[in-house]
Design a protein around this nucleic acid. Structure first.
Length: 422
RNA sequence: GGAGAGGUGGCUGAGUGGCUGAAAGCGCGGGAUUGCUAAUCCUGUGUAGUCUAAUUACGGGCUACCGGGGGUUCGAAUCCCCCCCUCUCCGCCA
């Protein structure tokens, strides 16, 4: 959430941010109104409480002196009724105030492109070149099913559409990739590995910004009110919820988790196979940093994600997302897209975002600055990277005319020396 | 899942209705003293909201917070109810 003072003092700046996001500014208007009401009410009720506290203390003193206090007690009783009534009003306005605050998105960073939707995203760079084929390249579904790497029909039978089932070398390749990426982030990039819960409570979901807005996009357990995580960002960031980090910043964590997302993709060719699914695996990187370093840290986070793709020799590009395309909690975001020749399309495999103090305020994550004062950290996260589309790119780029898949050299040691899936 | 014990400030730990936002100790900050290392003494040391102030800053007032929520009372860390968590024992279990 945003700093209340920032909204009060720089309303125009916040409003502009929302407009640039293509977001409704009504929530801001409502918030400002609620804020005014709340402050008036708080002042009033707190004055009455102060009065009550003072008199109550006097009652205590008088009683000890044996004086009769019946009359002032009755007066205080009446005051108590009034306070209770105002308190109720204050509670209601406080609730709506908080709810509105939680619904205001982050203000986009000043430097990012302004635009309504993805058409305004800027291609920051393109790395490598598209694989060329002297035959018609097939898509990953055809290739993988022929090789027994996955069985989508049975996944659908067991659970429903969008729940992919990997098999044999498909399963093995994905496991190898997870291991490969975690090793890289831990050994080369200095992250600490974490294996968190895959289910989180509402407080955690609110902390990172999934709730209240994305409630319908998540799987929820009926008995316990817990949510299946849509990304490792949730448990990993909430590691420090309600905490003051006592470690030297930055703190860098990485985690493999499955991710569960309800949002239904349109069925059909563009979302065929592994492209858009309800359950997928991902290796995530999360950073807790000092505010003044967060934009440098974003660049290094992006580097860390790119390293994976470079090591695998894949053709990719970096998009700098525009104001209308960044997520609710982000101030700035880079997407990484892989080239998939079988799709003849770019596939998003990573989003690297700086949330500034937006999540830290929601989740109350602080550190002690040089002066010993508690300050909110900045949080960042990025996929490093998501598995299904990485699989798609490896399969479609490595395909041979005979339908076999030549694997990137870097992954071979993780495959027990297997160089080709056939 | 059942039974018992317990959850107080950075930590240890006192506190069963008012003089307790909270003793004491430890830790930490500032100062003094001692010719080394060390020790001693003094002093300060929670968070959030809100009002006030105003160029910021510093400050001051008030309210709330002793696991969370509700209740009783003029007044609650303290009494009552519900929930959560931790520990011990039992049950079940990969």
């Amino acid at each position: 959430m945003l700093d209340i003072k920032r909204i009060r003092d720089n309303e125009a700046e916040v409003r502009e941010g929302l407009i640039n996001r293509n977001a409704d500014t009504k929530v801001l208007d409502d918030f400002i109104e609620a804020d005014k009401k709340r402050r008036v009410l708080l002042t009033e009720v707190e004055q009455l409480k102060s009065q009550r506290n003072t008199v109550s203390k006097q009652i205590g003193l008088k009683k000890r002196n044996g004086e009769d206090t019946t009359e002032i007690q009755n007066q205080m009783k009446d005051l108590g009724v009034e306070i209770a009534k105002l308190d109720q009003d204050a509670k209601e306005i406080e609730e709506s105030f908080q709810n509105l605050l939680l619904k205001i998105p982050n203000v986009p960073c000043k430097t990012i492109p302004v635009g309504k939707d993805e058409s305004a995203n800027r291609v920051a760079k393109t790395v490598g070149e598209a694989e060329t084929f002297d035959f018609e390249p097939k898509d990953h579904v055809t290739l993988g099913e022929n090789l027994g790497m996955f069985d989508f029909e049975r996944g659908t039978k067991i659970t429903g559409s969008g729940f992919p089932l990997l098999l044999g070398m498909g399963s093995r390749l994905q496991r190898a990739l997870i291991q490969f990426m975690l090793d890289m982030h831990v050994d080369k990039h200095g992250y600490t590995e974490m294996l968190p819960p895959f289910v989180c409570n509402a407080a955690s979901m609110t902390g990172t910004g999934q709730l209240p807005k994305m409630e319908d996009d998540m799987y929820k357990t009926t008995e316990d009110g817990l949510y299946l995580i849509p990304t490792a960002e949730v448990p990993v960031t909430n590691f420090y919820r309600q905490d003051i980090i006592d470690k030297e910043l930055p703190v860098c964590l990485t985690a493999y988790t499955p991710c569960f997302r309800r949002e239904a993709g349109a069925a059909g060719k563009v979302n065929r196979g592994l492209i858009r699914v309800h359950q997928f695996d991902k290796v995530e990187m999360v950073k807790f940093v000092k505010p003044e370093t967060s934009y440098d840290e974003l660049e290094s986070l992006l580097d860390n994600a790119e390293d994976v793709l470079k090591a695998l020799g894949l053709h990719y590009r970096i998009l700098e997302l525009c104001t209308g395309d960044i997520s609710f909690a982000a101030a700035k975001c880079y997407d990484i897209e892989l080239w998939a020749p079988g799709q003849d399309a770019w596939l998003e495999v990573s989003s690297c975002s700086n949330f500034e103090d937006f999540q830290a305020r929601r989740a109350s994550i602080k550190y002690k600055d040089e002066a010993g004062k508690n300050q909110f950290v900045h949080t960042l996260n990025g996929s490093g990277v998501a598995l299904p589309r990485l699989m798609v790119a490896i399969i479609e780029n490595g395909q041979q005319e005979d339908g076999s898949i030549v694997l990137p050299d870097a992954i071979v040691p993780y495959m027990g020396g297997i160089k080709t899936i056939k």
